[in-house]
């Protein structure tokens, strides 16, 4: 891993929330580096700041101070347009609650990012269907999210995350709402992304899934407690 180049890094990252007169420091000086193709698991107790770190790394949120670099490029001053573009072309997301659009079918949910990047839409349906087949949902392409089980929804979310062949996939507790069997299947799917040289950053507090990762970063009270 050490020979691979750094794809994401942070420098002295702070994030605070102010509610009324109370200021809460969620992240307190995070410095980390993530290599290309690495499978990194971020863990920690509830409220430790692991999800906040993921959101900042993925450009969904902004740090209060400190820097975030993607391939050496400082993301601090990115406009909304640039952030959006960066997420579309380089990042994929898997959320805990699936975050699918209810009025779109499984295939339509998957094809939206593809429509954004494709000049020709002739084969976006075919590509989306193929991706869904690869995650085991070949028979469910025309089903709406409300017609899918939790595990199936998460598979759609994974298909959507990878349809644009991203550099990094961020997964925020993707198994939290699933039973053990479905959770194992989802983690297997996510772990397989590594084979395609996709960097995976997984936030989880389930110890059994940490073993799948190349590296584990434990966050405690907004700081990195240890890296394994």
């Amino acid at each position: 891993m050490t020979n691979k180049k750094t794809i994401l890094s942070t420098s002295n990252l702070f994030k605070s929330y102010v509610v009324g007169s109370v200021k809460t420091d969620v992240l307190r000086g995070i410095d980390l580096e993530i290599k290309e193709g690495e499978f990194v698991a971020i863990t920690g107790r509830s409220g430790s700041g692991k999800s906040t770190l993921l959101y900042i790394l993925s450009l969904l949120d902004e740090p209060t101070s400190g820097e975030v670099y993607f391939e050496g490029c400082n993301l601090k001053d990115f406009s909304e347009g640039k952030s959006s573009f960066c997420r579309l072309h380089n990042y994929g997301f898997v959320f805990q609650d699936y975050a699918l659009l209810p009025e779109l079918t499984a295939m339509e949910n998957v094809k939206i990012p593809l429509m954004m990047v494709s000049e020709n839409w002739d084969d976006v349906d075919d590509i989306s269907t193929q991706i869904l087949k690869q995650v085991g949902l070949g028979e469910r392409v025309n089903n709406y999210p409300s017609q899918l089980s939790g595990g199936e929804k998460q598979r759609v979310a994974i298909a959507r995350a990878i349809v644009n062949n991203p550099r990094v996939v961020f997964a925020d507790e993707p198994t939290a709402n699933l039973d053990s069997k479905r959770a194992d299947e989802i983690i297997e799917l996510i772990a397989k992304l590594k084979e395609k040289e996709i960097t995976v950053i997984l936030v989880t507090h389930e110890k059994k899934y940490l073993k799948k990762a190349d590296r584990i970063i434990e966050i405690m009270d907004g700081k990195i407690k240890q890296e394994e």
Binding site: G81, S84, H89, Y91, F95, L101, M116, R160
Partner: peptide
């Protein structure tokens, strides 16, 4: 709002 956030999150631009 949540779904608008999701669209933005997966890279759909605000103008769209």
């Amino acid at each position: 709002e949540k779904y608008i956030g999701i669209l933005k999150g997966i890279g759909v631009s605000g103008i769209i």
